[in-house]
């Protein structure tokens, strides 16, 4: 199995979802197809549980739903770009860039370091612009892999 953090099949540059549950489900289905998540419903429950503690909508049109789950086989990132925007609870508006971060249960520090590395890139305009403008899922996956190194 490919164990890269993110691959082209985990990138959706035209995510169309009415709400965050649908957006997370859509990205999570890609994780299942890629063999990174073994039990979709279990994983979605774990993400929702985490989302209840604090919404993961960030300033600047970003959503970063994430969780550790026993349904996850390897630390993985799925990315969805949503032109319409999906409400992830940020005060300044909906998210256009959505990162779903999946970490195996017990993979505590790895999960946090991916999250921290991603957060550091997401405050940079250049990173967001590249993600917003690219038309090639493979190029996006490669770019994110290069940039987000814990």
């Amino acid at each position: 199995m490919n164990n890269e953090l993110i691959t082209s099949d985990l990138v959706d540059l035209d995510l169309r979802s009415p709400d965050k549950q649908a957006a997370v489900r859509s990205l999570a289905e890609r994780l299942v197809t890629a063999g990174r998540v073994t039990d979709l419903e279990r994983f979605l429950t774990d993400v929702a549980e985490r989302e209840k503690q604090m919404s993961t909508g960030m300033q600047g049109g970003i959503g970063i739903p994430h969780c550790r789950s026993e349904a996850v086989t390897a630390p993985t990132l799925a990315f969805g770009r949503c032109q319409e925007g999906v409400d992830f609870g940020a005060e300044d508006g909906p998210a256009n860039l959505v990162f779903l971060i999946a970490a195996p249960q017990g993979g505590d520090s790895e999960h946090m370091s991916v999250l921290a590395a991603l957060a550091r890139r997401l405050v940079r305009a250049e990173f967001k612009r590249t993600l917003t403008e690219s038309d090639d899922p493979a190029a996006v996956a490669e770019y994110v892999r290069e940039e987000v190194t814990p």
Binding site: Q59, G60, M112, L115, A116, A117, A119, R120, L122
Partner: peptide, 16 residues
């Protein structure tokens, strides 16, 4: 240093 009012900034610090 990062802006303490930015959740994203705080997460990026990776403080345990």
């Amino acid at each position: 240093p990062v802006d303490a009012a930015s959740v994203l900034g705080l997460m990026g610090l990776g403080v345990e």
